[in-house]
């Protein structure tokens, strides 16, 4: 069985650490090297993006990365199999759009994740109302389904999201799609604060946390951050070493808490 993501993150948090989860698009040139570099430079878990033809939650950087990976012949099962060869000692989650799972079949997909050492899945176009069947199948197979909480959710909705979340709660930092912004949106810490009040599951902010300084800001309230576009852009522009350096920089910033 893969490492248990939530147990791992809780242990890190108990040790006084803020949590850092970099996102890397699977199948992108040097993606495995980038993951190893991030793991060596202080990441607590890794999120691997499975490229999809129509990524509606993603901005230009991750769209471009997905397109490049698909052009290079990346496939969901190909990426998942390669994850098993990574040989890193932190948990791995995949981020993917629901059609990838639906087309493969829930059980087949979940089984493949477990077999290849993937702990968890994030499916941004599968909200609570549609997630029931997948969550049951994922629970049964031993895959933790990370649920997203959005700034637009009324107070009555957040407890339901939190209750269904496994691994951690993904607090969407702003109204919008993935990508780097000049400053951390005020919605990020407000939402993290609302979530922290109702759950002791780890709460991580993702979408729009764009650099070490913003990660530090986010971690004033949240248990940690996800770093997506800022990581993927560096991988595309400069390669895996730049990813390692960047993760070390963010690590240092959030460790000052």
């Amino acid at each position: 069985m893969p490492m248990h993501l939530e147990t791992h993150l809780r242990a890190q948090r108990s040790a006084g650490k803020k949590l850092l989860v970099p996102y890397v698009t699977g199948g992108l040139l040097n993606w495995k090297e980038a993951i190893r570099a991030a793991a060596a430079c202080g990441a607590d878990a890794i999120e691997v993006g499975i490229p999809f033809s129509d990524p509606v939650m993603d901005g230009p950087v991750i769209q471009e990365a997905s397109l490049r990976a698909l052009k290079d012949g990346a496939t969901p099962f190909g990426i998942i199999q390669e994850i098993s060869t990574l040989d890193i000692d932190i948990p791995i989650a995949v981020m993917l759009y629901y059609n990838t799972v639906f087309r493969a079949g829930h059980e087949r997909f979940a089984t493949s994740l477990v077999k290849n050492g993937v702990s968890a899945a994030i499916i941004p176009d599968l909200p609570l109302e549609e997630a029931g069947e997948w969550c049951r199948d994922a629970d049964a197979a031993g895959v933790e389904t990370i649920m997203l909480a959005a700034p637009t959710a009324p107070d009555s909705r957040l407890p339901l999201v939190v209750e269904r979340a496994r691994g951690f709660v993904y607090a969407v930092g702003l109204l919008g799609i993935t990508g780097e912004r000049d400053s951390l949106a005020s919605t990020a810490t407000v939402l993290a604060g609302r979530l922290k009040k109702i759950t002791d599951k780890p709460v991580l902010i993702g979408v729009g946390v764009s650099n070490a300084e913003q990660a530090y800001e986010a971690c004033k309230v949240a248990d940690g951050v996800i770093q997506g576009a800022s990581v993927v852009r560096r991988l595309m522009e400069s390669g895996p070493d730049a990813v390692g350096e960047y993760i070390a920089e963010v690590r240092a910033a959030i460790d000052t808490h």
Binding site: V56, P124, D125, L126, P127, E129, A150, T152, A153
Partner: peptide
Amino acid sequence: GGQFVPETLVPA
């Protein structure tokens, strides 16, 4: 059918 949208859009 259904409502397969990002969480942000569910309330809308």
